[in-house]
């Protein structure tokens, strides 16, 4: 599904800062992959590149066989909207919108009619056990509820791949377990999941682990 060939990323903010260097890896459909590394290791940048939010400075990135370098910004955005779901450490819900509206939002950008959007968003919120909070604002929710809402939003488009950036980082351990359980369920249903974490305990639970350090993949472990 995804293939990176000698991908590097350098930021040019006054001085050149290389955050990713010579990364080569492949991820197949239905995989459940952890990316483990300390903060500043470049794992977020890697996730942004995988999610078509950012582009490599060097090397080749094939997304479902397509060279990402040939995609226009609009194509990348549309592909991202249709096929990729993001889950962030700090949830990233839009504070002005209700739970239901937040979950509807990705479908809006796909041009789905309002009634169908509402229908599908409700279904997803039910799946993550958030049906009782549809009209609440994000600020009225607990951390776990916020992350469940964010997961519903990521799932509402039925993406091929979920990208999770430290999804449990802002949650207490019990709620974190709850969220991880939810992701496990989704993987069992066939969703490809790539999860960033710096928690070795969490990483150990995953079938495949990629360690990253100073912008380089130092170890690929399959279990």
């Amino acid at each position: 599904m995804i293939r990176l060939e000698q991908v590097g990323k350098t930021y040019l903010n006054g001085t050149a800062l290389t955050v990713l260097d010579d990364v080569t890896l492949s991820i197949a459909s239905h995989e459940y992959v952890g990316i483990l590394g300390p903060s500043g290791s470049g794992k977020s940048t890697l996730l942004h590149i995988l999610g078509l939010l950012d582009r490599p400075s060097r090397g080749r990135f094939l997304y479902r066989g397509r060279d990402v370098a040939t995609m226009s910004d609009e194509e990348a955005s549309r592909t991202r909207g249709r096929e990729i779901g993001f889950i962030f450490q700090s949830f990233h819900l839009i504070p002005n919108l209700t739970v239901l509206e937040n979950v509807e939002m990705p479908l809006f950008y796909q041009g789905v009619p309002a009634a169908e959007r509402r229908e599908r968003a409700r279904a997803r919120l039910e799946q993550v056990r958030m049906s009782h909070r549809l009209t609440h604002a994000p600020s009225q929710l607990s951390g776990g509820e916020r992350q469940r809402t964010a997961i519903a939003r990521a799932l509402v488009t039925q993406p091929l791949m979920l990208l999770a950036d430290e999804p449990t980082g802002n949650l207490d351990s019990k709620t974190g377990q709850d969220i991880l359980g939810l992701l496990d369920e989704l993987h069992a249903e066939g969703t490809t999941i790539i999860m960033i974490t710096h928690d070795i305990g969490i990483a150990r639970r995953l079938p495949r682990l990629i360690r990253i350090n100073d912008g380089r993949v130092t170890e690929e472990a399959d279990r």
């Binding site: 999610g51 609009e74 955005s77 549309r78 991202r80 909207g81 839009i94 002005n96 796909q110």
Partner: peptide, 15 residues
């Protein structure tokens, strides 16, 4: 931040 979120969930620049 909202702009970033909207872009991440599929909004194009035009949107």
């Amino acid at each position: 931040p909202e702009i970033g979120i909207r872009r991440a969930i599929g909004a194009t620049r035009q949107d």
